[in-house]
Simulated assay, not measured.
Amino acid sequence: MNIYQKLIEVRKAVPYLKKEDRGGQYSYNSSSQVVAAIREKMDELSLLLIPRIIDKNVLTETVENKDQYGNIKKRTTYFTELTMEYKWIDAENPEEEFIVPFYAQGVDIAGEKGVGKALTYAEKYYLLKQFNVPTDDMDPDQFQQKVEESKPPAPITPEQLEELEKLAERFGEIRNVTKVQVYKAIGVTTEPEKIPEGLAYNLIEQLKHWIKNATKETA
C-alpha cells in the first residue's frame, strides 16, 4: 500500500470515539484517548507522524482584581499560538511523505505550560479531523445504530428490477391492462428503478400472489 492507502486503513480502524472524560458541564475526548485509538493501527502499518513547529507567537494580558480584603491581585494570562505542520512518513518507504499544515493555541496562567497545552490541543484535534472521527456522548453501539438508521435505503437490485418488470408485464397480459396500470395498482408512483430494495421484495411477492390467483380464476 502507498501512504494514502495506509492512512485510509487508519481511518477505517477508528469509526467513532465516545467522549469519556468530563470537565464541568461538558464531556470530551482526551488527547491520550484519541492517540491510543489510532496508534496501534499506525504501528501495524509502519506509519510515523512527526510534528514540527514552524512559528510561534505569545501574547500576554495582565488583569488586576481585588480580593475579599481589598488587596489588588495581578494575574497574567499567556496565550500561545503555534504555526505547525504534521508530516506522515511511511517507514517501509521513507521517500513517501504527506505533510499537513496546522494551527494550535494554548492558554496558561503560569506561562511555562502554554506550548505544551498548544501541542496537546493540536495533536488531539489534528488526528480527529485528519481521520474524520465522529465523537459523541453515546456508546459505540448506539452510534452505529444511529448511523445505520440515517443511511438511505438500498436501491432495487438489477435482478429485482428484471423480475418486477416481467411479473408486471405477465399480470398485465392476464388482466388485459398495461404495465403502467399494473404498477399503479400496486402503489408504484415513481420509476421502478427508484424503488428501495425492501419495497421491491414486497411488490414482487404481491405480484406473484396476484398472478397465481388470477391464473386460477382464468383456468
Rank of each mutant, 00 (worst) to 15 (best):
R52Q: 13
I54Q: 13
I54L: 15
D55K: 13
D55L: 06
D55S: 12
L59A: 08
E61S: 12
E61D: 13
T62Y: 03
V63T: 10
E64T: 11
N65H: 10
N65L: 06
K66C: 01
D67C: 05
Y69S: 10
Y69C: 00
Y69T: 09
G70L: 07
G70H: 08
G70Y: 05
G70V: 04
I72R: 05
I72C: 01
I72G: 00
K73D: 02
K73Y: 04
K73N: 14
K74L: 07
K74R: 14
T76H: 04
T76S: 07
T77Q: 06
F79P: 00
F79N: 12
F79D: 12
T80L: 02
T80R: 00
E81Y: 14
E81M: 11
L82V: 02
L82N: 02
L82Y: 07
T83K: 11
T83E: 14
M84Q: 08
Y86T: 05
Y86S: 03
Y86C: 05
Y86R: 07
I89L: 11
D90P: 07
N93L: 06
E95Y: 11
E95M: 09
E95P: 00
E95N: 13
E96G: 02
E96I: 06
E97Q: 15
F98R: 06
V100E: 13
A104P: 00
Q105G: 03
Q105D: 13
Q105M: 10
G106N: 02
G106S: 06
I109L: 09
A110S: 15
E112K: 15
K113Q: 11
G114P: 05
G116D: 14
G116A: 10
G116W: 04
G116Q: 11
K117V: 02
K117Y: 13
A118P: 09
A118F: 08
A118Y: 06
L119K: 13
L119T: 06
T120F: 00
T120C: 10
Y121V: 03
Y121I: 01
A122Y: 00
A122G: 04
E123C: 14
K124I: 04
K124R: 15
Y125D: 10
Y125Q: 01
Y126S: 07
Y126V: 04
L128T: 01
F131K: 01
F131W: 03
F131C: 06
F131V: 08
N132S: 13
N132Q: 10
N132L: 10
P134L: 08
P134A: 10
D136E: 10
D137L: 15
M138N: 02
D139L: 03
P140R: 07
D141Y: 09
D141A: 12
F143A: 08
K146M: 15
K146S: 15
K146F: 09
K146L: 13
V147F: 08
V147Q: 08
V147G: 02
E148M: 09
E148A: 15
E148K: 13
E149I: 02
S150I: 04
S150V: 03
K151V: 01
P153I: 03
A154D: 07
I156K: 04
T157F: 08
E159Y: 06
L161Y: 11
E162K: 15
E162T: 11
E163D: 06
K166M: 13
K166V: 10
L167P: 01
A168E: 00
A168I: 05
A168H: 04
R170N: 11
F171E: 05
F171H: 12
G172T: 03
G172M: 05
G172E: 01
I174R: 01
V177S: 10
